[in-house]
């Protein structure tokens, strides 16, 4: 479970151009939830996602991952939390270009210290679910955008994180690939029980998620 209590975040604090990006956010995301942060551009979706993902710090308030207050952690501890508890899917896939699909999917597990056999087994399992098991030996640049994004999802899922944070994951995909990706993530959410939080404008995602959290000017509405 993720719990946010009175979270505030400013950009350019104490400067004339100060922006109050998150305003007193109180939110609970239960385990296994499939949630969408929605709202107009600049409303604070990505900022909120980054704060939950321990990528960014907050100026006040508290963020808990289960009982652990992640808003108190230092940089090194936040890196460790991101590695072991979270999975990330970005708009631009961001795969390691010199590694094969198989190595990209197993990359986080490798960082976590899993054995090669464990990684191989899990990579095969996730790749089958995402229907990229026939591309395991390919390099990312030989795949289509949709396939690359599935590899990115597989990488995020492979290590069985507590939560997957996906920032505009369908922004670079056509509607068909977007639909396929959402369906696959829904399937993963059900099968693996991993919480998924999206930040997106995509109407397709809105139709698919069970919970929509709307933001406007940094506030929940």
């Amino acid at each position: 479970m993720i719990r946010l209590q009175n979270v505030n975040k400013y950009f350019y604090k104490d400067e004339p151009r100060e922006v109050h990006a998150l305003v007193d956010i109180n939110l609970i995301i239960e385990d296994g939830e499939f949630t969408l942060f929605s709202g107009p551009s600049g409303c604070g979706k990505t900022t909120l996602l980054n704060a939950i993902g321990a990528l960014d710090t907050i100026d006040s308030g508290k963020i808990f991952l289960d009982e652990l207050e992640i808003s108190l952690l230092n940089e090194k501890e936040r890196t460790r939390i991101r590695l072991n508890k979270m999975g990330f899917v970005f708009q631009a896939y961001n795969l390691v270009p010199v590694l094969s699909v198989e190595e990209n999917i197993g990359f986080i597990m490798k960082l976590q210290g899993f054995s090669d056999a464990q990684i191989k087994e899990r990579v095969q399992e996730v790749a089958s679910l995402l229907k990229i098991d026939n591309k395991l030996q390919s390099l990312p640049n030989t795949l289509s955008g949709g396939q690359q994004q599935r590899v990115a999802v597989a990488r995020a899922v492979a290590s069985k994180p507590k939560i997957i944070l996906a920032d505009e994951p369908t922004a670079n995909l056509d509607s068909k690939n977007s639909q396929t990706l959402i369906e696959m993530m829904l399937e993963l959410n059900e099968k693996e029980g991993i919480s998924v939080v999206f930040a997106s404008h995509d109407e397709l995602i809105k139709e698919s998620v069970r919970r929509i959290v709307r933001l406007e000017d940094g506030m929940l509405v």
């Binding site: 990528l55 090194k76 890196t79 460790r80 939390i81 991101r82 590695l83 072991n84 979270m86 999975g87 990330f88 970005f90 631009a92 961001n94 390691v96 270009p97 990359f107 986080i108 960082l111 990488r155």
Partner: peptide, 16 residues
């Protein structure tokens, strides 16, 4: 630079 930034984001330690 983006590749390294993403590596750091997904939890790869700087030492690696």
């Amino acid at each position: 630079i983006r590749e390294f930034g993403i590596m750091l984001a997904v939890g790869m330690e700087y030492k690696y």
